[in-house]
Write a protein that binds this DNA or RNA. Structure first.
Lengths: 123, 123, 123, 123
DNA sequence: GTGGTCTAGACCACC
DNA sequence: GTGGTCTAGACCACA
C-alpha cells in the first residue's frame, strides 16, 4: 500500500541490515563485523557502497573502527541502534500505518486481537 | 533485504493510486476516471503502463470499461477495493509490522496510546 | 615545524575552503555556492570529491541544499562554522603551537609585541 | 589552499625530526646520531632520503660528518638549530597563525589565559 | 590483509 | 541544469 514511495538507497539498506543484525543480537557488542570487501562480495555490491553504509553507522556511534583491523560493534551499540530506529519508526512509519488503517477502515480491536494470534508460541 | 529490487512495478503502483482515490471517495461510484492517455501524461509514464493498471483493476471488478467512452467507477467498487486491499494488508503488511514492533521492542500499549493522539510524538 | 603530520584529505581541504569563504563573508547567508560540478572543474578535482565535502558541511548544518537547484549558505551558517572551527583550533592547533613555542624557546612577550607590529593598518 | 601538495618533502621532514631531537636535548652536543642506514630502516624510507636530510643539516652546520665514523651533533648545534627554526617560525608559521586568529575571532587575551593553563579547554 | 581516499564515468530523479 | 547514487578500479597508510 505504498504509493510511489521511492526505494531507499542501497547503502542505507545495508546500514539497516547491519542494524537489524545488531538488534537481533546476531552481532554482539565487541564483535568484529565483516570487512568492507567481504560484505561487498557477499551482497554483490561495490565496496564503496558498503564503505558508505559503515561510515553512516560509525557517525551515529553504532559501529567503530580500528585502522587496518576492521569495524567493530561498539559498547552500547544495540541501545543506540534501538533508539535511532525507534525514533525513525515513530516519526515516519507509524503515521503512514495509521493512515493506511484509516483508509482501509481497520478497527484497532482487530489488530489487538490478531496481535497474539498468529504466533502464540513465539519467544 | 535484497538489493536492486524496484519496490513494486509501476503499473501496480498506479493501480494502487486509483484504489486510494476510490477509497478516499475522491472518485465516487459512477464517476468517469481519467482517460488512459490523460493519466499517462499526468504521471509521466507510458500509456501502456496505465492501460495495464486499468486492465488489472477491471479484472478485479473495481473499475469497468465502456468502449469508446472511458473507464468508470462501478457499483460496489469501493467495497471491492476495500476487501482486496484489506486482504493484502492483513496478509503482507501487518506481519511485517509485528516483526518490526518486536525488533524495536515497542509495547502495544504505546501504540494504543499514540493511536488517538498522533502528532504528539513520544520518545 | 610539523613532524610527519599527515596531509589532510582533499575533500576536507575543500570543506575548509568553503568554511573560510563563509567566515570571510565572501559567501553570505542565503547565497548559492558553486555547483558540485563547477567547483570540481575550478579545483581540478573529481565531482565526487566536492560532493563529499558538501555532504560533510551539510551534515554540520553549515550549508543546505535544494534538489535540482544547488547548495546554499544557510541561516546562522557563519556562526556555526565559527563555533566548529574554533573548537578545532583550541583542541588541536593551539596545543601544537604551544609545544612549538616551548621547543623554540619563544617568549610570550615576543608574540604579544609582534601581534600588533606587522600589520598595524589592518582592518 | 592548493591540492595534491605533499605537506613537505620527506627529506625535509626527516631533517626537522633530527632538529627536534636536538632541541629537546635528546641528542646532545658531541653525540653520534643514528647512521643513515639505521635511521632509514627505522623510518621505513630509502637511505638516500635520509642521506639528503643529513646533507641539508650538515650544510646548515647543525650536524657534522666524520668519514667512516658517522654523523655527530656539533658544538653550538642546538643554538644553530634554534636560530634557524625560530626564523622559519617567525617568517612562515606565525603570520599564518595570526591570520587564523583573526578569521576565528579569537581574542589575544583568551590565548594568554590558556597559555599557562592548558588542558583546561575552554569554549 | 584492513580501511580510506580519489578518479572516471555512468545513470537516475528533480526542476 | 542540479544533486544523488553506484560502479570499477586505482593507490595509499597502517598493521
Amino acid at each position: 500500500m505504498d504509493f510511489f514511495r521511492p526505494p531507499t538507497s542501497i547503502y542505507l539498506q545495508i546500514a539497516d541490515l547491519v542494524c537489524e543484525r545488531i538488534l537481533l543480537r546476531a552481532w554482539k557488542e565487541g564483535d568484529r563485523i565483516p570487512s568492507v570487501r567481504d560484505l561487498a562480495v557477499e551482497l554483490q555490491v561495490n565496496p564503496n557502497t558498503v564503505m558508505r553504509a559503515y561510515a553512516e553507522l560509525q557517525e551515529k556511534g553504532i559501529i567503530s573502527n580500528q585502522r587496518g583491523v576492521g569495524y567493530f560493534v561498539g559498547p552500547e551499540s544495540r541501545a543506540k541502534a534501538l533508539a535511532i530506529k525507534r525514533e525513525e519508526f515513530f516519526r515516519a512509519e507509524l503515521p503512514r500505518m495509521f493512515k493506511t488503517l484509516e483508509l482501509l477502515e481497520v478497527e484497532w480491536s482487530e489488530l489487538t486481537r490478531l496481535r497474539k494470534a498468529p504466533e502464540t508460541a513465539a519467544e
